[in-house]
Design a protein around this nucleic acid. Structure first.
Lengths: 199, 199
DNA sequence: GTCTATAGCTGGATAGAC
DNA sequence: GTCTATCCAGCTATAGAC
C-alpha cells in the first residue's frame, strides 16, 4: 500500500465535490442574471465560501467559464445520446431538432456560452470543446442517415435550428412563438433536400 | 427678430454635430472591441474630450446606447428604403434578404444592439425603437406582396434570416459559409409557402 | 461647456495568518 | 484549505473652478 491511496482518493473526491458545488452556484447565478453579471465575489457568497477559496479550486474566472463550458458540452452530448431510436429516420431527425431547441431555450445562458461564444476574452480549452464537436458529428451522421450528405445542407440545418432558437430567445422569451414552427421547418428542409438530390 | 434665432439655430447645430462626433467614436469602438467593452473614459479619449464633457451631451451611458440604437434603426430602415424595385416580387424578396444579411454581418455590434438586445440593463426608448418597427412592417408588406400572408410564415422568414446571420457571425466571422446559402434558403422558403397555400 | 480632480463603488486577484 | 484584509485597476458619475 503506497501513500495511503484510499485517503488520497477520498480527498480528491471531496475536492471534486466542492468544485461541483461552486459550478452549481455559478449556473444558478448566470441563469438568473446572465453570463456577463457573474462576479467572483457574488459567486463565493452564493457558494458559501470566501473569494480566495474559489481560487483554491479554479485558477481564474475564465477557468470557471471553461469548466462550465465543459459541463454544457457534456450535457448537450448526453441529451443527444439519450434520444431513443424511433426506427424512422424522419422521426429521429424531428426528435433531434426538438431536443436541440429545447436544450437551448431551457437555459439561455448555457446556449450563449456554448454556441454563441459570447463571453469576452474567453475561449474554451480543447478538452472542454471536445464533447461539443462530438455532438455536432452526431448530427451530421444523423442527417447522413436520412440521405442528407451535401455539406451546404448540413450548414443550412444548423442555421435553421439556431434561427428558431435565436428568435425565440430574443423576441418571445419564455414563449413558443418560434419553437412551435419546428415541425414545419423540418418538413420544409427535407423537402428541399430531396428535390436537390434529383438533379 | 426675437432672441436672435439664427444664433440659437447655429448653437443647436453645433451641439448636434458634437453629439454625432461622440456617437461616431462610439461606433468605431464597439466595432473594434464589442458592445460590452465600451467605457465612457475610453470613449471620451477617442472623441478628444474629457469624461464630464460626455455628460454635457448625454445623460448617461444608457442614453448613449439609446442614441446608437436609434441610429442603427434608422440605418436599417433606410437601407431597406434604398432598395430599388425590380418589378419582380421574387427578386425584390431576394434583394431584401441579402440586404438584411449584409446589414447584420457587416457590423456585428450594431446587429447585437438592434436585434439581440444584448446590452444588460438597457432597453431602447420608444422613439429609438420606432424606426425598427417600421422596418419590420416593410418586410411584412413585402412578403404579403409575394402572397405570404400566414403570420407563421412571416415568423419563419425572420427565423431563417437570423439563423444565417447568427451562424455566420458565431462560426465563420468574416467569411461567407452561411451567407452564401441565402438564395437556396429563399427558394426553399417560397416553395414551402406556395405548397401550403394549395391546401 | 469644458476642464481637473475625485468620490464611490465593484471588479479580479493576492498576501499572509491560522 | 480557508479565512480576513487588502491591492490595484477599472467603472459611472459628480463637484467645482474657469
Amino acid at each position: 500500500m503506497l501513500k495511503r491511496p484510499v485517503s488520497a482518493d477520498w480527498r480528491e473526491a471531496r475536492r471534486q465535490s466542492a468544485r461541483a458545488a461552486v459550478l452549481a452556484a455559478a449556473w444558478e447565478m448566470v441563469r438568473a442574471d446572465g453570463l456577463a453579471a457573474l462576479s467572483l465575489r457574488d459567486l463565493a457568497r452564493h457558494a458559501g465560501i470566501s473569494t480566495p477559496t474559489v481560487y483554491a479550486y479554479f485558477d481564474s474566472k475564465n477557468a470557471i467559464f471553461d469548466a462550465m463550458f465543459g459541463e454544457a458540452a457534456e450535457s448537450f452530448a448526453s441529451s443527444k445520446a439519450d434520444l431513443v431510436d424511433k426506427g424512422d429516420p424522419y422521426e429521429n431527425l424531428k426528435a433531434d431538432a426538438k431536443n436541440f431547441i429545447e436544450f437551448c431555450v431551457s437555459d439561455v445562458a448555457r446556449y450563449q456560452l456554448l454556441f454563441q461564444h459570447s463571453v469576452p476574452g474567453f475561449t474554451p480549452s480543447p478538452q472542454s470543446y471536445a464533447p461539443a464537436v462530438r455532438a455536432l458529428e452526431l448530427t451530421r451522421e444523423q442527417l447522413k442517415g436520412y440521405g442528407v450528405r451535401n455539406p451546404r445542407h448540413v450548414d443550412m440545418w444548423t442555421a435553421l435550428m439556431t434561427g428558431l432558437v435565436d428568435q425565440q430567445i430574443s423576441n418571445d422569451p419564455g414563449g413558443s412563438r418560434w419553437t412551435r414552427l419546428v415541425d414545419d421547418v423540418v418538413n420544409m428542409f427535407l423537402t428541399h433536400c430531396s428535390q436537390e438530390e434529383d438533379h
